[in-house]
Design a protein around this nucleic acid. Structure first.
Lengths: 138, 138
DNA sequence: TTCCCTGCAAAGCTTTTGCAGTGGG
DNA sequence: CCCACTGCAAAAGCTTTGCAGGGAA
């Protein structure tokens, strides 16, 4: 199965310390800065593999890049993401699910899935605007 | 302001005849096939301009490409898209909006926006599987 | 006559892939 | 001892951009 390599361990460890969504390139740079260099291609391969196993959540950002984040719950859920610092709250709710199912039925659609992301400004960022562009954890 | 060129007219006319989301490349091909060739770069520039004016809706597809569709209502709304034929239903509802606002408040987030897309199989496509891969209108 | 718009080709971005070498089990 | 995994570099999409010519107003 999956081999426990230095690269995979380093990436998992890094993801474990972050609560926000990061791009593959950001993760690649962070690893390099921490003295645990991993080639960009490998970062992509690892993230792809992890996403397949449900280890990370993938977010299609407004820009044309994907962002990844350690997945903390297996059940279906959504994300409330801070647009400034990337801090994320996982939201498990059935309101939207029920609405989606009802709407689909009304229009005769079957096998309906949905994607939903909430983007806003978290308390920390609108309380202390100066730190709004920080790129660290949380 | 905006000049009424052959290219812009052709694209608007084409979008007006379609109810589904199409990629820039698809639109480019369709125009070419109709004998109204428009360069791909221009298709992109026109779509970008139209999206800015709210003339078209932009959908970030699962693949790494954007898809465009003529926008029929100005108010905030969501889309129920058929994954086979691209047929789209615009859904204006407040259930999700109210839920999003409530959730954001609970977690101390401000200025929250959301993206929501419903993807399924429309009646026509699961009734007649043979036509499930058609690429035409509707 | 302007100067906005277009076409072409080249470049930019993120992401994927081919290939040969290496380290995990 | 294998062969999955890695790094490198090239390639593959989609999209944007520089530039010079052409057409709308």
């Amino acid at each position: 199965m999956e081999r426990r390599t230095r690269q995979r361990s380093a990436l998992e460890e890094l993801l474990g310390r972050n609560t926000g969504f990061r791009s593959a390139q950001q993760l690649h740079t962070m690893l390099r800065d921490e003295g645990e260099p991993v080639s960009l291609a490998t970062v992509y391969r690892l993230l792809q593999s992890m996403a397949g196993d449900g280890e990370v959540d993938v977010l299609r950002s407004q820009e044309s890049e994907n962002r990844y984040r350690r997945c903390h719950r297996q059940e279906h859920h959504h994300h409330l993401v801070c647009r400034h610092c990337g801090h994320t709250v996982e939201v498990a709710e059935t309101t939207v699910e029920r609405w989606a199912a009802r709407t689909a039925r009304q229009h005769g659609f079957a096998a309906v899935t949905h994607t939903l992301e909430l983007l806003g400004t978290c308390t920390a960022c609108y309380t202390t605007p100066a730190t709004a562009t920080r790129s660290g954890n949380e």
